[in-house]
Design a protein around this nucleic acid. Structure first.
Lengths: 197, 197
DNA sequence: GAGTGTGATATATTTAAGTATATCAAGTTG
DNA sequence: CAACTTGATATACTTAAATATATCACACTC
């Protein structure tokens, strides 16, 4: 194997893991391969066995295939087309998870339950577009607003955060944020912004 | 790796080698992997490294690919469509090689040069259909006839062999032999059977 | 029968993959 | 700041892949 090919394989595995938002330790659990070994594999430091490769690939929802050389370009095209479905970046996943935690926390405060339920609904709707989020500033801003609910902002801060979510979701749906507008996976459509409150 | 998968991989490699008409020793030379090891690999007795797999695969005009699970059916389809181009079986290749040797031998005898040239032309035309031959009895029969040229048959045996080749080629072209008729790679067309003699 | 080819198998050796476990430096969170 | 996470790295050990070489049984050819 040329070093170019082993580098490609290592890079493919690393990219796939990151794309799924897994740490090496999480992948280690899934694949049954020690984390230290995964680190070496990803850095191209070992020539792994087919069974190790298969275990890791399967844990990453990949399959090992032997394809005729003349079919390789077509296979690459297919792989790319599947991979081109937008996925949430690891950063986005983290911010969404933090936001989810914050929303859960507010639920346990038992304040103005209808307003919290509205917030939750908007959060669920925002999550449907999480694959399109490429800049997490808006998510962080919403989280700051939700923190203010605890501090003293109360219901007005809650509503502010809900509005922010709604605006952000709408912008994503319209592809109007700084996100890559060619990545919109659906026809543009209009959303009503005033369906409650 | 499940044993089903390692069996599949071994079978794939063996089938690919046979399809190319290579012996394990020939593949060994091409891939730089000892023949004894290839034997073990094909029987599924070892868990080979990715570099060994890649070396062997490349020698068989295959590429290793990691494809998303959801794309695996499409990849299998592509692989199958490339593989479905008919190829001569190893047995057919052998018989064709033997026949070629026999024809060469007759050339060196310097008998009735026009008849030998006709034979050669018919042999070349037959070879264009060698991918379709699935039963080598006809080839063996032609070879026996050619042997009779040496013995005492002379030019009449030569002509008999030429006719046999011509008939076999026509039958292949028409898909009228016991070969699988769905494998005809071209529209059926009519050949003139009496273009010489 | 001698010679050749083929795939399977054996032997001895070297190399490194794989494993378990621990630790480190850096980053993040509350 | 303490606690946790992350990926990289180290250590010691086991296991087996890989290699070189040879041989066998069988099939085929002349």
């Amino acid at each position: 194997m040329t070093s170019y090919e082993s580098e490609k394989l290592a890079a493919t595995l690393k990219a796939a893991r990151e794309k799924k938002g897994l740490s090496q330790r999480a992948l280690s659990s899934r694949a049954g391969v020690p984390q230290s070994h995964i680190s070496k594999i990803e850095s191209g430091a070992v020539n792994l066995t087919v069974s190790s490769l298969t275990a890791i690939a399967n844990a990453l929802d990949l399959e090992l295939a032997l394809v005729p050389r003349k079919a390789a370009p077509a296979v690459r095209t297919i792989t790319r087309s599947v991979n081109d479905v937008p996925k949430a970046t690891p950063e986005t996943r983290k911010e969404i998870a933090r936001l989810a935690k914050q929303v859960d926390h507010l639920r346990s405060l038992e304040i103005d339950t209808p307003a919290v339920e509205t917030l939750q609904r908007h959060f669920r709707e925002l999550r449907q577009f999480e694959n399109l989020i490429r800049n997490t500033d808006a998510l962080r801003s919403i989280r700051e607003t939700l923190k203010a609910v605890d501090d003293a902002g109360g219901v007005s801060a809650l509503r502010e955060a809900t509005n922010q979510m709604s605006s952000f979701r709408n912008a994503l749906a319209h592809g109007l944020t700084e996100e890559n507008r060619t990545r919109l996976p659906r026809p543009a459509y209009r959303l009503d912004g005033g369906d409650d409150e």
